[in-house]
Design a protein around this nucleic acid. Structure first.
Lengths: 328, 328
DNA sequence: TTGAAAGCGCTAACAG
DNA sequence: CTGTTAGCGCTTTCAA
C-alpha cells in the first residue's frame, strides 16, 4: 500500500501537505490538485490505523446488543448505522448474547481500538460501564436504562404494557395473562407493571399474579410459558407478550393447539416483522426500534462532538395497532 | 491508559520484555510474574491500534452481508462469530444493503484497518474484489458464488428448488408458481432452475414460464409478486418462495385473502424463524445458515494461518421439512 | 533470556 | 500556506 510519503514524493510536496489535503485544512489549490492526482495514481488510501494511533480516536462506534438474531435489535441497528455512516462513522456490531462477560470484552476492545463511543443495550443490571466511562468516551444506553448518569433512549414500556392489556380488555377478554422477560431487566418489569395496573383497574378482585410468567426474551421462553398457562386449571383467554419473540412463541403454541388468535386473544409488545398471521388477528404495540437507533446515534454523535450538557433520557412513544378481528 | 512503558517501569524490566510476556515468547518465570503483577496493578490493556500498526494486521475479520435484517444472514453471522471469537478474533459486521458502493467502502475500510480477512455475501455480479485480493488478504465467499478464484461456501440451491417443487407436486398441486430473487444473483437463478426442471419433468406440456416471478429478496418483493400471480386469469394453486422473506410476503398475502396454506400450497426455500403458522402447513427447505457461517469462518482462519491449498468451494446440503397438513 | 533502538504511517505543533 | 520534526504504543531485529 502506498503511504503518504509516496504521494508526497510524486506530488513534489511534503507529507504534511498530503495529510492536510486529506484532512481539509488550508492548502493552495495547485497543491491540492497535485496531491489528488498523485494519490489517485498510486491508489492511495490513508492508513486508518496510523491515523487512529496518532489521533487517539477513530471514526468508529461500537453498538453492543444482547441478541443479534432479534429483529427488534437489528432494526435498531439499521437506524444507528444510517445516521452514523451519514456522518462518516462506521458501526461495529457486537453481540453480547446477554452475557456480561462478553459485554465486558467488547467494551474493552472498544477502548483498545480507540473507538469514539458506544451505544449499548445492556445485558442486565450487572453490566459495568465504569471502565469505559473512565476513559471519557461517551456512552449512550438504548432500550434499557442503567444506573449511570449517561444519555439514554427508552421505550414507554409501562404505557406499552397498559395499552396492550387495555386493548384486550376492550375486546372483551377477561382472564388476561402476561408473559414477560426476566424480571430483573427493567424493560420487562415496567411492561409487567403496565399490564398489572390495567388489569387490576378493570378487575379489582381478580387473582392477577397467578396469570403472570417471567421467561427469557426468546421464542422458546414464550413457548414454555404459554404451555404452562394453558395447563392451568382455569387457563387464560388472552395473553400479553412482553416482547416480539415471546409473542411468536406464544402464538406458535396457540396455533398448534387450534387456539389461533383471536380465539385466544393476543397482544404483543413489539412488532412481528415476519409474521404470517392475518394482520387483524393480533394486537401489536409497535415499538419504534429504528427511531430509537437513530436518536441514540444522534445523541452519541453530539457527545463525540464535544457536547457537555447534562445527561438526557428520551422516552419514545409507541403506537397501538389493535386487532380488528372479532373474538370467536 | 497505562502503556507498556508504565508496566515496564513498575516491574523493573524493559518494555520489550513486557511485550514478550503478552505475546508468549520466552521470558523467565520471575519476570513474567513481575510483569503480570504490574499490569494488573495498572489495569493495563495492550493498545491494539499500536500493535496493529506495527504488525500490519489485526485480529479482526470483516463480515459483509447484504441485509442485516434478514434472519438468514444473522443466523449465519452467529456461526461466524462463534468460531471467530473462539479463536480470539473479533467480527465486524458490515451491512452492504445490497449496494456495491457500500460494499466497496467496507472493503476499503477492512484494508485500511488492517483486518486479517473478509467473509462476504456479495451484493451482486458487480462486486469487485480486485482491490482487497491485491492486498493478499484472504476472502471467503458465502451464500453466493463469485467469479474469483477464492474459497466459498454455498447452499445446494438447485437441489433446494427441486425439492421444494417436488414436494408440492407430491402433495397434488398442479399450477406451481415460483417467486425468486433477482435473476442476476446466482442463488436466485439456481433455485429457479431447480423449480423449472422439477416442474417441467412433471408437466412437460405446461406453460411454466408464465408462473415465474422475479422480485427482491424481501418481504415486499414476495407480497407484490404474490399479488400479481393471484391476479392471473388462471392463478396458481401453489407457490415456491425463493427465500425466507419472499415466503413471508407470499404467505401474508395468501392469509389476507383467506387462502391460508395449505389451501394454496407453499414451499419456502429457507427457514421461517419467527413464523406463527402451524408448523405443518408449509413445506420448508431448511438452509443450514449457521453451519455456513461456521464453515466459512474455519476456512478463513485456515487461510489467515497461512494455508495455501487451491481454492475450495463447499456445497451444503439442505433438509426438507415437508408440510404434513392435508390439502383442503 | 534480555535490553536498546528503530520504525509501522500518520498528525500536529512549531517555524518559517 | 508549507515544511520539518517529534512522537502515538507497540513489536522486533540485533547485540549482549
Amino acid at each position: 500500500m502506498a503511504t503518504i510519503y509516496d504521494v508526497a514524493a510524486l506530488a513534489g510536496v511534503s507529507p504534511a501537505t498530503v495529510s492536510r489535503v486529506f484532512n481539509g485544512t488550508s492548502v493552495s489549490d495547485e497543491k491540492v490538485a497535485a496531491v489528488r492526482d498523485a494519490a489517485a495514481k498510486l491508489n492511495f488510501t490513508p492508513n486508518r490505523t496510523a491515523r487512529t494511533l496518532r489521533r487517539q480516536s477513530s471514526e468508529v462506534i461500537a453498538l453492543v446488543i444482547p441478541d443479534i438474531e432479534n429483529p427488534y435489535f437489528t432494526e435498531m441497528a439499521r437506524g444507528v448505522e444510517d445516521v452514523a455512516s451519514e456522518a462518516g462513522y462506521s458501526v461495529v456490531l457486537c453481540n453480547s448474547d446477554s452475557q456480561t462477560v462478553k459485554e465486558a470484552t467488547y467494551l474493552r476492545i472498544a477502548v483498545a481500538e480507540h473507538m469514539s463511543g458506544v451505544i449499548i443495550a445492556t445485558a442486565d443490571e450487572g453490566t459495568s460501564l465504569d471502565e469505559i466511562l473512565a476513559t471519557g468516551r461517551p456512552v449512550v444506553a438504548v432500550d434499557r436504562s442503567t444506573s449511570y448518569d449517561i444519555d439514554g433512549v427508552v421505550m414507554a414500556n409501562r404505557a406499552a404494557g397498559t395499552s396492550a392489556t387495555q386493548d384486550l380488555i376492550n375486546a372483551g377478554y377477561r382472564r388476561i395473562a402476561y408473559i414477560g422477560g426476566p424480571e430483573h431487566i427493567d424493560t420487562a418489569a415496567e411492561r409487567a407493571a403496565g399490564w398489572r395496573s390495567a388489569l387490576s383497574a378493570a378487575q379489582p378482585d381478580a387473582d392477577i399474579e397467578s396469570l403472570a410468567r417471567f421467561a427469557t426474551f426468546r421464542v422458546d421462553g414464550g413457548r414454555a410459558a404459554m404451555e404452562e398457562l394453558l395447563a392451568l386449571p382455569e387457563p387464560p383467554d388472552a395473553v400479553v407478550a412482553g416482547n416480539n419473540l415471546i409473542g411468536v412463541g406464544a402464538i406458535q403454541v396457540l396455533t398448534e393447539r387450534g387456539l389461533t388468535p383471536p380465539k385466544v386473544g393476543v397482544a404483543v409488545i413489539g412488532s412481528l416483522p415476519f409474521t404470517t398471521l392475518s394482520p387483524t388477528a393480533v394486537t401489536v404495540v409497535r415499538l419504534p426500534a429504528r427511531h430509537m437507533g437513530v436518536t441514540a446515534a444522534r445523541m452519541l454523535l453530539e457527545r463525540i462532538g464535544g457536547d457537555t450538557q447534562p445527561a438526557r433520557t428520551i422516552v419514545l412513544r409507541n403506537e397501538v395497532q389493535p386487532a380488528s378481528a372479532l373474538r370467536v
